[in-house]
Design a protein around this nucleic acid. Sequence first.
DNA 1: ATATCGTGATAGTTTTTGCCTATCAGTCGG
DNA 2: CCGACTGATAGGCAAAAACTATCACGATAT
Lengths: 319, 319
Amino acid sequence: MTSDNKFPSINQLKYFVAVAKSLSFRRAAQALGISQPTLTTQVQSLEKTMNLSLFERNRSGTLLTPQGNTLLPLAQEVLRAGQRFNDTARELIDGTSTTYRLGVPPTLGPYLLPFVLPELHRRFSQLKFYVREEFPQQLEEGLLNGQYDLIISPSNHESAQFIVSELFTEPLKLVMPKDHALAGQEFVKPTDVQGEKVLTLEGHHHFHHQVQTICAQIGAQMYRDYEGTSLDTLRQMVVMGVGISFLPGLYVHSELHRPNELHVCELQNIPITRVQHLIWRNTAPGRVFFRELAQFFREIVAEKLASAVHVKNTTTRKI
Amino acid sequence: MTSDNKFPSINQLKYFVAVAKSLSFRRAAQALGISQPTLTTQVQSLEKTMNLSLFERNRSGTLLTPQGNTLLPLAQEVLRAGQRFNDTARELIDGTSTTYRLGVPPTLGPYLLPFVLPELHRRFSQLKFYVREEFPQQLEEGLLNGQYDLIISPSNHESAQFIVSELFTEPLKLVMPKDHALAGQEFVKPTDVQGEKVLTLEGHHHFHHQVQTICAQIGAQMYRDYEGTSLDTLRQMVVMGVGISFLPGLYVHSELHRPNELHVCELQNIPITRVQHLIWRNTAPGRVFFRELAQFFREIVAEKLASAVHVKNTTTRKI
DNA sequence: ATATCGTGATAGTTTTTGCCTATCAGTCGG
DNA sequence: CCGACTGATAGGCAAAAACTATCACGATAT
C-alpha cells in the first residue's frame, strides 16, 4: 500500500490515444493493426488499473469521458517522450552523432584541439565532444572509472584495459631569451646547456617529469624555485630572463607568433619529443568507431599541423 | 519498413534508468524487486531493439556508454510523463476533481451559475466546469454527440438516452414601465393584458416559444418587429416604453436592482413558469456523481435563491 | 414491425513475453 | 591461487497479449 506505481504499459496508452482519436474501437483496431477484441480488452485493462472510465460506450459510437478527456494529452505526452527517445536512439546508432567525453592534458588541448575539432565537425556534423583538461594521471583514472570515453595522453602505460592508439610525435623545443648567449643557433650543443637554469611546470604535469628526465640526461639543472602553472607563464618567465625552458612544439606553433620575443631552437643530435596517444577502454562498445576516430585525428593532424609534429603511418595497436 | 515504431516498454525504460543510477545490475535488480537475470535480459532486449549499447559491461562494474548517457534523460522524461499520467488518473477517480463541460441556455446561465458554481467550488475544490452558452436545441444535440457532459435545459424531452433531473421551477415575471396603466399592482388580471404589445427574444430562444404560448393563452399580442437578442436589451425596450414583457425570475433577481425602473408583477391565478433540468447521457460513466451533483444544485439553489425560484423535493427520475 | 448493419463485449485458445532458479564465466583483491 | 564479486546464459513456468468466433444490443432502412 505504499504507492501503487503500477504503470500502464506504453502499448495501452497508445491504444487509448488511438481510440480517443477515432472514437471507434473497430476503426482504431484497424489503424493499429490489431484485432478489435484485443483493443477492447487492453483498454478495459487500462481502465481497470486506473480505476476509472476513459470511454463512454454507446451501442452507436464511443465518447471520451471527462476523465478520458483530461488524461488524453497526458497519454500523448508519454508517447511523444517515447518517440523522442526512439528518434534519438536511432541517431545515436552509428556513433557519429554522439557526444563523447574527451579528456586532454592542459599542455596539449588548447594547442591541438582548435585545429582538429572544427575539421571533425565538418566531417560529422552531429559529432560532439565534451572536453575537459586534466593531468594525465587523472585522465587515466577518469577513463578507467567512466568519467571519460576517450583521453589523449602522452603516457602509453601498458594496461589490459586500455586500447592505445598513437596519434603523433611532438618535438619539445628549447627556448631562451633573444639576448641569451646561445641565441641565434638553430641547433644547440647539449654540452652548452650544462649549467643553464631550466624552468618547467609544477610537479603534477607530465611535462615536468619529462623535462626532469631530459635535464638529468644532458646535465642541465632544473630551476625549482619558480615553477609555472601554465605554458604561458613559463614563456613569460623565459622572456623575463629567469632561465631557459622547453616548450611543446604545438604550443610554439600556436602561440609564438612574435618570433622576436624568444629564440626557438633544438638540441643537436638529441631529438626530444613526446608522443601523444588516443586511449579508450577496451570494453567500450564504441571501440570500432574510436579506431576510425584515431585515424581521422592522424589524418587531420598530418594535414594541418605537419610543420609542428610528426605523424607516423601507424595503425592502431593494442597494448 | 515504413517506420519501425517498436517502442521500448515502460518497464524496460525503468530498468534502464535503474541500472544507470546504480551502475550495477545486481543492486538495481534488488532495488527493483526483480531478479538479476531478468534485468539483464530486459536491458539486452532494449539494447537490441534500439540497436545500440547502453552500457559498457566490465567484469567489475558497469558504465554508461555515451549513447546511454544521452538517452538516460530521455528515458527519465518518459517515466516522468507516465508518472504524471498516473498521478492525474488517481485524482480523477472519484469524479470530484474533473473538468466537466456544462452547457446552459443564455437566458439562464449568467443569472444562475454565479450563485451556484462558487458554492460547488467551495465543496469540491478540484471540481471544474467548462461552461458554454447555447440554445437548448443545440445543447441537447451537443449532449448527444459528446460536446457536453452535462446541460441545463428547460425542455425535458423524453429520450431513452438522457437522464433528466429536475432542478427548480422559475417563475416568469411580467414587467412594464413604471408609468404603465397597469403598474402598481402585484397581480395583474390576464384580461387586462389583452391587446398589450408583448416583447420577447428572437425565435431560436426557448424563451421565445414559451412567451408565444402564454400570449396565445391570455390573448395578448406578440410584438414581432423588435425581438431582442438578450434579456438586457429586452429590459431596455420595456423601459423605453416599446411594450411589456415577461422576464425570467432569476434574471429579475440578478439584474433588477433598481426597482424604480420597471414594475414587476405576475399574472393573477395563472402561474407562468419554466422548469430547469440537469441532463446527462444515461450511458455516462459519471452518472452516479451527476445524480449527486443535481442534488447539490437543488440544495444550493434552495439555499441561495429561495426568493426567486422554487425547488421541489424531487429526486432524480429517469424519463 | 422487422430485418440488417454496425457497435463494443465476451469466450476460448494460442503465442509471446516476462520472470524465475540454477549455473556459468570471467575479474579482482587478498 | 582462492574466494567473492561481476554480468551472461539456459531452461522452465506463468502471466500477458494476441487471435478467431460469437454475442448482445441499438440504429436504421425496408
